[in-house]
Design a protein around this nucleic acid. Structure first.
Lengths: 187, 187
DNA sequence: AGAGAAACGGACTCGCGAGTCCGGTTCGCT
DNA sequence: AGCGAACCGGACTCGCGAGTCCGTTTCTCT
Protein backbone atom coordinates (compact mmCIF):
# COMPACT_ATOMS: atom_id res chain seq x y z
CA UNK A 1 0.00 0.00 0.00
CA UNK A 2 2.17 2.79 1.38
CA UNK A 3 -0.31 5.53 0.52
CA UNK A 4 1.67 8.60 1.57
CA UNK A 5 -0.46 10.65 3.97
CA UNK A 6 -1.52 13.71 2.01
CA UNK A 7 1.29 16.21 2.47
CA UNK A 8 0.21 19.78 2.91
CA UNK A 9 2.11 22.01 0.55
CA UNK A 10 4.74 24.30 1.98
CA UNK A 11 3.18 27.48 0.58
CA UNK A 12 -0.15 26.57 2.13
CA UNK A 13 1.46 26.31 5.55
CA UNK A 14 3.30 29.58 5.07
CA UNK A 15 0.17 31.37 3.95
CA UNK A 16 -1.81 30.12 6.89
CA UNK A 17 0.73 31.63 9.24
CA UNK A 18 0.76 34.89 7.28
CA UNK A 19 -3.01 35.08 7.52
CA UNK A 20 -3.05 34.54 11.28
CA UNK A 21 -0.40 37.21 11.79
CA UNK A 22 -2.21 39.67 9.58
CA UNK A 23 -5.50 38.92 11.30
CA UNK A 24 -3.96 39.51 14.71
CA UNK A 25 -2.60 42.86 13.55
CA UNK A 26 -5.85 44.03 11.97
CA UNK A 27 -7.98 42.84 14.87
CA UNK A 28 -5.65 44.72 17.18
CA UNK A 29 -6.32 47.91 15.27
CA UNK A 30 -9.97 47.60 14.37
CA UNK A 31 -11.40 45.10 16.79
CA UNK A 32 -14.38 43.16 15.55
CA UNK A 33 -14.90 45.73 12.84
CA UNK A 34 -11.91 44.29 11.00
CA UNK A 35 -12.74 43.34 7.41
CA UNK A 36 -11.72 40.07 5.85
CA UNK A 37 -10.55 41.72 2.62
CA UNK A 38 -8.22 43.93 4.61
CA UNK A 39 -6.79 40.97 6.47
CA UNK A 40 -6.22 39.19 3.18
CA UNK A 41 -4.54 42.26 1.70
CA UNK A 42 -2.29 42.69 4.71
CA UNK A 43 -1.29 39.04 4.50
CA UNK A 44 -0.54 39.52 0.82
CA UNK A 45 -3.00 36.86 -0.30
CA UNK A 46 -6.48 36.77 -1.80
CA UNK A 47 -9.73 36.44 0.06
CA UNK A 48 -10.11 32.93 -1.25
CA UNK A 49 -6.97 31.84 0.53
CA UNK A 50 -8.24 33.15 3.83
CA UNK A 51 -11.45 31.19 3.41
CA UNK A 52 -9.60 28.02 2.50
CA UNK A 53 -7.71 28.11 5.79
CA UNK A 54 -10.66 29.24 7.89
CA UNK A 55 -14.22 28.32 6.93
CA UNK A 56 -15.62 31.53 8.46
CA UNK A 57 -14.40 34.77 9.89
CA UNK A 58 -15.29 33.44 13.32
CA UNK A 59 -12.88 30.56 12.90
CA UNK A 60 -10.19 33.11 12.16
CA UNK A 61 -11.09 35.04 15.27
CA UNK A 62 -10.91 31.82 17.22
CA UNK A 63 -7.48 31.02 15.80
CA UNK A 64 -6.18 34.41 16.90
CA UNK A 65 -7.82 33.96 20.29
CA UNK A 66 -6.06 30.64 20.73
CA UNK A 67 -2.69 32.28 20.08
CA UNK A 68 -3.48 34.98 22.62
CA UNK A 69 -4.67 32.57 25.26
CA UNK A 70 -1.51 30.49 24.88
CA UNK A 71 0.58 33.65 25.11
CA UNK A 72 -1.29 34.64 28.25
CA UNK A 73 -0.73 31.24 29.79
CA UNK A 74 3.01 31.32 29.05
CA UNK A 75 3.23 34.78 30.62
CA UNK A 76 1.45 33.69 33.75
CA UNK A 77 3.64 30.61 34.13
CA UNK A 78 6.80 32.62 33.54
CA UNK A 79 5.75 35.19 36.13
CA UNK A 80 5.16 32.41 38.62
CA UNK A 81 8.92 31.87 38.70
CA UNK A 82 9.22 34.93 40.92
CA UNK A 83 9.56 33.74 44.53
CA UNK A 84 7.27 36.52 45.78
CA UNK A 85 3.77 35.63 44.53
CA UNK A 86 2.41 39.15 44.86
CA UNK A 87 5.32 40.58 42.89
CA UNK A 88 4.76 37.85 40.31
CA UNK A 89 1.15 38.87 39.98
CA UNK A 90 1.69 42.59 39.74
CA UNK A 91 4.58 42.45 37.30
CA UNK A 92 2.56 40.06 35.15
CA UNK A 93 -0.25 42.58 35.04
CA UNK A 94 2.09 45.44 34.28
CA UNK A 95 3.57 43.43 31.45
CA UNK A 96 0.12 42.76 30.07
CA UNK A 97 -0.67 46.46 30.04
CA UNK A 98 2.58 47.20 28.29
CA UNK A 99 2.18 44.52 25.68
CA UNK A 100 -1.43 45.20 24.85
CA UNK A 101 -1.36 48.95 24.96
CA UNK A 102 -3.70 50.18 22.25
CA UNK A 103 -4.55 46.66 21.20
CA UNK A 104 -8.18 45.87 20.57
CA UNK A 105 -7.43 42.24 20.01
CA UNK A 106 -6.63 41.37 23.56
CA UNK A 107 -10.29 40.95 24.37
CA UNK A 108 -10.37 38.07 21.93
CA UNK A 109 -8.18 35.96 24.13
CA UNK A 110 -10.77 36.11 26.83
CA UNK A 111 -14.27 36.23 25.56
CA UNK A 112 -14.63 36.26 21.81
CA UNK A 113 -14.89 33.72 19.09
CA UNK A 114 -16.47 30.39 18.31
CA UNK A 115 -16.67 27.68 20.91
CA UNK A 116 -14.00 25.57 19.25
CA UNK A 117 -12.75 22.78 21.51
CA UNK A 118 -9.16 23.85 20.98
CA UNK A 119 -10.01 27.39 22.04
CA UNK A 120 -11.87 26.22 25.11
CA UNK A 121 -8.88 24.14 26.06
CA UNK A 122 -6.44 27.01 25.59
CA UNK A 123 -8.65 29.21 27.72
CA UNK A 124 -8.96 26.58 30.40
CA UNK A 125 -5.18 26.27 30.54
CA UNK A 126 -4.75 30.02 30.77
CA UNK A 127 -7.37 30.13 33.47
CA UNK A 128 -5.58 27.44 35.42
CA UNK A 129 -2.24 29.24 35.18
CA UNK A 130 -3.84 32.43 36.41
CA UNK A 131 -5.53 30.59 39.25
CA UNK A 132 -2.19 29.22 40.43
CA UNK A 133 -0.62 32.64 40.30
CA UNK A 134 -3.44 34.13 42.33
CA UNK A 135 -3.62 31.28 44.83
CA UNK A 136 0.03 31.82 45.60
CA UNK A 137 -0.56 35.49 46.35
CA UNK A 138 -3.59 34.69 48.45
CA UNK A 139 -1.58 32.15 50.46
CA UNK A 140 0.97 34.79 51.50
CA UNK A 141 -1.87 37.09 52.52
CA UNK A 142 -0.95 39.77 50.02
CA UNK A 143 -4.07 39.25 47.94
CA UNK A 144 -7.63 39.36 49.19
CA UNK A 145 -8.84 35.88 50.01
CA UNK A 146 -12.00 36.08 47.94
CA UNK A 147 -10.22 36.98 44.71
CA UNK A 148 -11.22 34.87 41.74
CA UNK A 149 -9.67 34.52 38.29
CA UNK A 150 -13.05 35.24 36.72
CA UNK A 151 -13.12 38.65 38.35
CA UNK A 152 -9.72 39.48 36.99
CA UNK A 153 -10.77 38.37 33.54
CA UNK A 154 -13.78 40.66 33.62
CA UNK A 155 -11.76 43.64 34.81
CA UNK A 156 -8.95 43.04 32.35
CA UNK A 157 -11.01 42.51 29.26
CA UNK A 158 -13.34 45.29 30.30
CA UNK A 159 -10.61 47.84 30.78
CA UNK A 160 -8.88 46.74 27.60
CA UNK A 161 -12.01 47.04 25.50
CA UNK A 162 -12.87 50.35 27.08
CA UNK A 163 -9.46 51.88 26.46
CA UNK A 164 -9.14 50.41 23.01
CA UNK A 165 -12.55 51.69 21.95
CA UNK A 166 -11.59 55.13 23.18
CA UNK A 167 -8.51 54.87 20.95
CA UNK A 168 -6.36 55.47 23.97
CA UNK A 169 -2.73 54.85 23.00
CA UNK A 170 -0.84 56.47 25.80
CA UNK A 171 1.02 53.65 27.58
CA UNK A 172 0.93 55.64 30.81
CA UNK A 173 -2.85 55.40 30.88
CA UNK A 174 -2.76 51.65 30.32
CA UNK A 175 -0.20 51.26 33.08
CA UNK A 176 -2.26 53.44 35.39
CA UNK A 177 -5.38 51.33 34.89
CA UNK A 178 -3.44 48.11 35.30
CA UNK A 179 -2.23 49.47 38.60
CA UNK A 180 -5.78 50.20 39.70
CA UNK A 181 -6.85 46.69 38.83
CA UNK A 182 -3.94 45.25 40.76
CA UNK A 183 -4.85 47.38 43.76
CA UNK A 184 -8.40 46.12 43.63
CA UNK A 185 -7.02 42.68 44.47
CA UNK A 186 -4.75 43.79 47.27
CA UNK A 187 -5.79 42.61 50.70
CA UNK B 1 -49.61 88.57 10.77
CA UNK B 2 -49.71 86.48 13.93
CA UNK B 3 -48.08 83.46 12.30
CA UNK B 4 -48.49 80.89 15.05
CA UNK B 5 -45.13 79.23 15.70
CA UNK B 6 -45.40 75.75 14.22
CA UNK B 7 -46.95 73.58 16.94
CA UNK B 8 -45.66 70.04 17.12
CA UNK B 9 -48.53 67.62 17.14
CA UNK B 10 -49.30 65.80 20.34
CA UNK B 11 -48.98 62.33 18.79
CA UNK B 12 -45.56 63.23 17.43
CA UNK B 13 -44.35 64.14 20.90
CA UNK B 14 -45.81 60.96 22.37
CA UNK B 15 -44.25 58.80 19.69
CA UNK B 16 -40.85 60.35 20.13
CA UNK B 17 -40.94 59.41 23.80
CA UNK B 18 -42.15 55.90 22.96
CA UNK B 19 -39.28 55.47 20.53
CA UNK B 20 -36.66 56.58 23.05
CA UNK B 21 -38.03 54.22 25.67
CA UNK B 22 -38.16 51.32 23.25
CA UNK B 23 -34.65 52.09 22.04
CA UNK B 24 -33.32 52.15 25.59
CA UNK B 25 -34.93 48.77 26.26
CA UNK B 26 -33.65 47.14 23.07
CA UNK B 27 -30.16 48.60 23.42
CA UNK B 28 -30.09 47.27 26.97
CA UNK B 29 -30.79 43.78 25.66
CA UNK B 30 -28.83 43.70 22.45
CA UNK B 31 -26.26 46.45 22.74
CA UNK B 32 -25.13 47.96 19.48
CA UNK B 33 -26.52 44.97 17.63
CA UNK B 34 -30.02 46.30 18.22
CA UNK B 35 -31.98 46.62 14.97
CA UNK B 36 -33.97 49.70 14.06
CA UNK B 37 -36.97 47.66 12.90
CA UNK B 38 -37.10 45.96 16.27
CA UNK B 39 -37.00 49.26 18.10
CA UNK B 40 -39.82 50.55 15.91
CA UNK B 41 -41.88 47.41 16.53
CA UNK B 42 -41.33 47.61 20.28
CA UNK B 43 -42.40 51.24 20.25
CA UNK B 44 -45.48 50.25 18.28
CA UNK B 45 -44.66 52.54 15.37
CA UNK B 46 -43.27 52.14 11.87
CA UNK B 47 -39.65 52.52 10.84
CA UNK B 48 -40.50 55.76 9.11
CA UNK B 49 -41.54 57.33 12.37
CA UNK B 50 -38.26 56.45 14.00
CA UNK B 51 -36.37 58.07 11.15
CA UNK B 52 -38.51 61.20 11.31
CA UNK B 53 -37.55 61.76 14.94
CA UNK B 54 -33.92 60.76 14.52
CA UNK B 55 -32.11 61.27 11.23
CA UNK B 56 -29.86 58.26 11.83
CA UNK B 57 -29.53 55.35 14.19
CA UNK B 58 -26.58 57.12 15.76
CA UNK B 59 -28.77 60.05 16.69
CA UNK B 60 -31.05 57.63 18.46
CA UNK B 61 -28.12 56.13 20.31
CA UNK B 62 -27.06 59.63 21.29
CA UNK B 63 -30.56 60.43 22.58
CA UNK B 64 -30.52 57.36 24.77
CA UNK B 65 -27.02 58.19 25.93
CA UNK B 66 -28.16 61.66 26.97
CA UNK B 67 -30.92 60.18 29.11
CA UNK B 68 -28.42 57.86 30.76
CA UNK B 69 -25.87 60.55 31.39
CA UNK B 70 -28.51 62.75 33.03
CA UNK B 71 -29.65 59.81 35.13
CA UNK B 72 -26.06 59.18 36.16
CA UNK B 73 -25.60 62.82 37.11
CA UNK B 74 -28.78 62.89 39.23
CA UNK B 75 -27.64 59.73 41.01
CA UNK B 76 -24.23 61.17 41.79
CA UNK B 77 -25.73 64.40 43.10
CA UNK B 78 -28.27 62.53 45.20
CA UNK B 79 -25.55 60.33 46.68
CA UNK B 80 -23.55 63.43 47.59
CA UNK B 81 -26.23 64.22 50.19
CA UNK B 82 -24.70 61.55 52.43
CA UNK B 83 -22.50 63.32 55.01
CA UNK B 84 -19.82 60.62 54.70
CA UNK B 85 -18.25 61.08 51.25
CA UNK B 86 -16.82 57.57 51.08
CA UNK B 87 -20.18 56.05 51.95
CA UNK B 88 -21.75 58.30 49.34
CA UNK B 89 -19.34 57.00 46.75
CA UNK B 90 -19.67 53.35 47.55
CA UNK B 91 -23.44 53.29 47.82
CA UNK B 92 -23.65 55.16 44.54
CA UNK B 93 -21.56 52.49 42.90
CA UNK B 94 -23.58 49.70 44.45
CA UNK B 95 -26.74 51.36 43.19
CA UNK B 96 -25.28 51.57 39.70
CA UNK B 97 -24.51 47.86 39.71
CA UNK B 98 -28.00 47.06 40.90
CA UNK B 99 -29.72 49.27 38.36
CA UNK B 100 -27.69 48.22 35.36
CA UNK B 101 -27.43 44.55 36.07
CA UNK B 102 -27.59 42.77 32.73
CA UNK B 103 -27.92 46.01 30.84
CA UNK B 104 -25.84 46.48 27.74
CA UNK B 105 -26.98 50.01 27.31
CA UNK B 106 -25.13 51.48 30.22
CA UNK B 107 -22.00 51.77 28.15
CA UNK B 108 -23.83 54.23 25.94
CA UNK B 109 -23.96 56.79 28.69
CA UNK B 110 -20.22 56.89 28.77
CA UNK B 111 -18.62 56.32 25.45
CA UNK B 112 -20.99 55.70 22.60
CA UNK B 113 -22.86 57.77 20.10
CA UNK B 114 -22.47 60.81 17.94
CA UNK B 115 -20.66 63.88 19.21
CA UNK B 116 -23.83 65.89 19.58
CA UNK B 117 -23.31 69.09 21.60
CA UNK B 118 -26.16 68.17 23.90
CA UNK B 119 -24.61 64.79 24.60
CA UNK B 120 -21.22 66.30 25.25
CA UNK B 121 -22.80 68.70 27.69
CA UNK B 122 -24.72 65.96 29.52
CA UNK B 123 -21.51 63.98 29.80
CA UNK B 124 -19.57 66.96 31.05
CA UNK B 125 -22.20 67.55 33.73
CA UNK B 126 -22.11 63.92 34.80
CA UNK B 127 -18.35 64.05 34.88
CA UNK B 128 -18.45 67.13 37.06
CA UNK B 129 -20.89 65.54 39.52
CA UNK B 130 -18.68 62.48 39.75
CA UNK B 131 -15.61 64.63 40.28
CA UNK B 132 -17.24 66.38 43.22
CA UNK B 133 -18.26 63.07 44.76
CA UNK B 134 -14.73 61.75 44.45
CA UNK B 135 -13.05 64.92 45.62
CA UNK B 136 -15.08 64.74 48.80
CA UNK B 137 -13.92 61.22 49.48
CA UNK B 138 -10.33 62.14 48.70
CA UNK B 139 -10.53 65.07 51.11
CA UNK B 140 -11.44 62.81 54.02
CA UNK B 141 -8.56 60.51 53.14
CA UNK B 142 -10.79 57.53 52.44
CA UNK B 143 -10.04 57.52 48.71
CA UNK B 144 -6.62 57.39 47.12
CA UNK B 145 -5.42 60.87 46.30
CA UNK B 146 -4.59 60.14 42.68
CA UNK B 147 -8.07 58.86 41.82
CA UNK B 148 -9.55 60.43 38.71
CA UNK B 149 -13.09 60.34 37.33
CA UNK B 150 -11.73 59.17 33.99
CA UNK B 151 -10.33 56.05 35.61
CA UNK B 152 -13.65 55.25 37.16
CA UNK B 153 -15.39 55.73 33.85
CA UNK B 154 -13.04 53.28 32.16
CA UNK B 155 -13.46 50.68 34.87
CA UNK B 156 -17.21 51.07 35.03
CA UNK B 157 -17.95 50.97 31.35
CA UNK B 158 -15.37 48.24 30.88
CA UNK B 159 -16.83 45.98 33.51
CA UNK B 160 -20.36 46.68 32.33
CA UNK B 161 -19.57 45.86 28.72
CA UNK B 162 -17.66 42.78 29.73
CA UNK B 163 -20.41 41.40 31.92
CA UNK B 164 -23.15 42.34 29.52
CA UNK B 165 -21.38 40.69 26.59
CA UNK B 166 -21.00 37.55 28.64
CA UNK B 167 -24.76 37.67 29.21
CA UNK B 168 -24.15 37.68 32.91
CA UNK B 169 -27.44 38.39 34.66
CA UNK B 170 -26.74 37.33 38.20
CA UNK B 171 -27.00 40.52 40.32
CA UNK B 172 -24.55 39.03 42.81
CA UNK B 173 -21.82 39.04 40.18
CA UNK B 174 -22.51 42.65 39.26
CA UNK B 175 -22.41 43.63 42.93
CA UNK B 176 -19.21 41.72 43.44
CA UNK B 177 -17.47 43.50 40.58
CA UNK B 178 -18.77 46.87 41.73
CA UNK B 179 -17.22 46.13 45.09
CA UNK B 180 -13.89 45.34 43.49
CA UNK B 181 -13.96 48.61 41.57
CA UNK B 182 -14.78 50.52 44.75
CA UNK B 183 -11.89 48.82 46.53
CA UNK B 184 -9.53 49.81 43.77
CA UNK B 185 -10.14 53.42 44.77
CA UNK B 186 -9.73 52.91 48.48
CA UNK B 187 -6.68 54.50 49.97
C1' DA C 1 -67.90 69.58 11.26
C1' DG C 2 -64.58 70.29 7.72
C1' DA C 3 -60.21 71.55 5.55
C1' DG C 4 -55.49 71.39 5.29
C1' DA C 5 -51.15 70.48 7.19
C1' DA C 6 -48.41 67.34 9.46
C1' DA C 7 -47.37 62.64 10.84
C1' DC C 8 -47.84 57.75 9.92
C1' DG C 9 -46.13 53.15 8.12
C1' DG C 10 -44.34 49.75 5.42
C1' DA C 11 -42.81 48.63 0.76
C1' DC C 12 -38.63 49.93 -1.68
C1' DT C 13 -33.67 51.06 -2.71
C1' DC C 14 -28.99 50.74 -1.98
C1' DG C 15 -24.42 49.70 -0.21
C1' DC C 16 -21.60 46.74 2.17
C1' DG C 17 -19.34 42.78 3.48
C1' DA C 18 -19.35 37.57 4.22
C1' DG C 19 -18.76 33.56 1.80
C1' DT C 20 -18.42 30.80 -3.18
C1' DC C 21 -16.34 29.32 -7.48
C1' DC C 22 -13.51 28.32 -11.24
C1' DG C 23 -9.72 29.34 -14.65
C1' DG C 24 -4.91 29.86 -14.00
C1' DT C 25 -0.65 29.03 -11.40
C1' DT C 26 2.69 26.74 -8.40
C1' DC C 27 4.39 23.01 -5.89
C1' DG C 28 6.20 18.29 -5.06
C1' DC C 29 7.17 13.96 -6.65
C1' DT C 30 9.33 10.86 -10.15
C1' DA D 1 12.03 18.15 -16.93
C1' DG D 2 7.35 16.97 -16.79
C1' DC D 3 2.92 15.86 -14.86
C1' DG D 4 -0.95 15.79 -11.81
C1' DA D 5 -2.79 17.54 -7.81
C1' DA D 6 -3.38 21.01 -4.69
C1' DC D 7 -3.46 25.85 -4.05
C1' DC D 8 -4.11 30.67 -5.51
C1' DG D 9 -6.87 34.98 -6.37
C1' DG D 10 -10.37 37.98 -7.39
C1' DA D 11 -14.77 38.39 -9.80
C1' DC D 12 -19.37 36.96 -8.38
C1' DT D 13 -23.58 35.99 -5.46
C1' DC D 14 -26.43 36.72 -1.74
C1' DG D 15 -28.51 38.33 2.52
C1' DC D 16 -29.08 41.83 5.70
C1' DG D 17 -30.03 46.08 7.58
C1' DA D 18 -29.83 51.34 7.25
C1' DG D 19 -32.21 54.94 5.32
C1' DT D 20 -36.07 56.90 1.64
C1' DC D 21 -40.62 57.82 -0.24
C1' DC D 22 -45.30 58.49 -0.99
C1' DG D 23 -50.24 57.16 -0.54
C1' DT D 24 -53.03 57.14 3.63
C1' DT D 25 -54.44 58.46 8.22
C1' DT D 26 -54.80 61.57 12.14
C1' DC D 27 -54.59 65.74 14.43
C1' DT D 28 -55.54 70.81 15.13
C1' DC D 29 -57.59 75.04 14.24
C1' DT D 30 -61.62 77.62 12.82
Amino acid sequence: MAVPAARTRADAVRNRALVIDAAAAVFAEKGEAALVPEIAARAGVGKGTVYRCFPTKDHLVAAVAIERARWFERGARAAAADPDPWAAFSTFMAGLAEAHCGDRGMIFSMSQGLDLPELLEARADAHEALRELMDGAIATGAMRADARPEDLKVLLSGVASSLATAEERDPAVWRRLAQLVVDAFRR
